[in-house]
Design a protein around this nucleic acid. Structure first.
Lengths: 109, 109
DNA sequence: TTTATTGTTCGCAAATGTACGAACAATATT
DNA sequence: AATATTGTTCGTACATTTGCGAACAATAAA
């Protein structure tokens, strides 16, 4: 099946690298997988799933938040975390576009 | 349209983070985009497209190679680089699986 | 054998990432 | 007011990444 190749702007390429950077750690991927499979997701629930200090977990969540992949909302005294739907879909589309750039090319080496 | 969710093993998650790490730099994304649009691709051709030292370019290519996203083949005295088709498709599939994990969830926050 | 061509590797400096415990902030409970 | 709960931020130590020029390796050409 033939993929449709979408030209990627430099801005898109920088965005992809930004998302990739946030995803460039096994723990952060685990966090995303966990969040993506949940509706409810307090900090404590996430922290309980991992064997790391809460300060470290908070730092990983901050990186994912700064990259735009997740959202955090205070529900005193807890903090609820979720996938950031719009940005998640943007990331999904941009990665797909990138990988589709190659589809069908003939490899020489 | 409903996506099919594929469970991701821990090994798959680690592989995704490994690929993401290799992609976590704007220059390396640019290199991938460039390679993905080419059939022929000598080191020099790639280097000419960027304003960085060749040692730096060599290092970026090594990271992409170590992650398995590209291949390098000596054609003395040049080196031809290409997308690594099999691993590229693996990465494509794993990222798609990851992003599809969320599709359809209801966001609370 | 000397010289050119093409990339890689080495050695360094600066910046960034990773992980932890301690300290802190904000609110709720006693 | 004192205490408990929930997370974030701070300070610190160590590892990794990034980028460069210089040195090197492998082959081809003069």
């Amino acid at each position: 099946m033939e993929k449709v190749k979408v030209k990627m702007s430099v801005a898109d390429q920088e965005l992809v690298s930004r998302f990739a950077k946030a995803m460039a750690h096994p723990t952060r991927i685990e966090i995303l997988v966990f969040l993506a499979s949940q509706d409810s997701c307090f900090f404590g629930d996430i922290h309980d799933e991992f064997s790391i200090a809460k300060s470290t977990m908070s730092q990983h969540l901050k990186e994912l938040r700064d990259a735009g992949l997740i959202k955090g909302e205070i529900e005193t005294p807890k903090v609820r975390y979720c996938i950031h739907k719009e940005n998640w879909e943007t990331a999904q589309r941009l990665f797909a576009n990138l990988f589709d750039l190659f589809d069908g090319n003939e490899v020489i080496c």
